[in-house]
Structures are given as structure tokens and as C-alpha cells.
């Protein structure tokens, strides 16, 4: 399972890549493995704003529907329309092609609340041991 070091992570298994005050968001390798074959992705519109931990989209596998939560408050700058037509990328390239949205972050201080790669890996180990 992959936990790239250039990402920050949430308890709900989203990853965040930070560049200045923009954040690219997707779901983690662990999340896609738990979901199984992803067949549908629903994304917000450019200009939508979300609070921290507010659901901004949905990802559906053959079996299950999951909400995707906004790791930090912000405004949607860009959405990955290609992912809508190729939802299977969530399984094949969760940290690359399968990014969901780019956000303009309201308060970059919020990044401090997120896990780094090592902390997230520990968190996943604990969660999957339960």
C-alpha cells in the first residue's frame, strides 16, 4: 500500500497535495482498496465552496457508495472532468490521474491538522487491525 511522502492525509482517507494556498485532493490507496472497483465519481462545480469535513463529492464502487470530504475549507478552482469518464483511475492511480479537485484554501494553517505520511500509515494500520 502506498503512502506518498509529498501528501497530507485525513482520517476519512483523503490525500492533499499542497502548493502555496492551493490543495489538490483525492482519495488514498487504502480507500480505493477498501472500496473495490470504482465505477462512478460525482464531483462539485468550479466555484463551489466547502467547509472543513463537508462532503464535496461521492465515489461509488460496484458494492458501495462513499462520500468524499473536504480536508480543509476552500473554494473549488478546478475539477477533474476526465475522472468522471474514467472512474477506474481511482483504483489504478489514486495519487496521480485520479485527483478529484483543486481548492483555493481559506486558511493554510488548517494543513497543520492533517496527518503526514508516517502518521497516516500508523492510523491505517490501527484501523485495519480492528
Amino acid at each position: 500500500m502506498k503512502f506518498p511522502e509529498d501528501c497530507l492525509y485525513t482520517k476519512q482517507h483523503e490525500w492533499v497535495k499542497v502548493k502555496g494556498d492551493t490543495a489538490t485532493v483525492g482519495i488514498t490507496d487504502y480507500a480505493q482498496k477498501e472500496l473495490g472497483d470504482v465505477v462512478f465519481v460525482e464531483l462539485p462545480k468550479v466555484g463551489d465552496t466547502f467547509d472543513t469535513n463537508e462532503p464535496f463529492g461521492n465515489v461509488e464502487s460496484v458494492k458501495a457508495v462513499s462520500e468524499v470530504f473536504c480536508p480543509v475549507a476552500g473554494e473549488v478552482l478546478e475539477v477533474n472532468q476526465d475522472l468522471v469518464s474514467s472512474p477506474e483511475w481511482v483504483n489504478t492511480d489514486p495519487y496521480g490521474d485520479a485527483w478529484f479537485v483543486k481548492l483555493k484554501v481559506t486558511d493554510p494553517e488548517e494543513f497543520k491538522e492533517l496527518f503526514n505520511s508516517e502518521e497516516y500509515e500508523e492510523y491505517v494500520a490501527e484501523e485495519s487491525a480492528e
Binding site: 473495490g36 472497483d37 465505477v39 464502487s61 460496484v62 458494492k63
Partner: peptide, 20 residues
């Protein structure tokens, strides 16, 4: 296999992926 509860049993839900 990914295992889960079904009808009181711990059953295999998928191995290589449901679609495959």
C-alpha cells in the same frame, strides 16, 4: 479475499475484484 458478514457468516466478498 475481502471478508464480510453475510447472513451471520463471515464470507468472501471479493478476491481479485468484483468486475473481474
Amino acid at each position: 479475499a475481502k471478508m464480510a458478514e453475510f447472513a451471520g457468516w463471515e464470507m468472501p466478498i471479493e478476491y481479485s475484484g468484483i468486475i473481474q
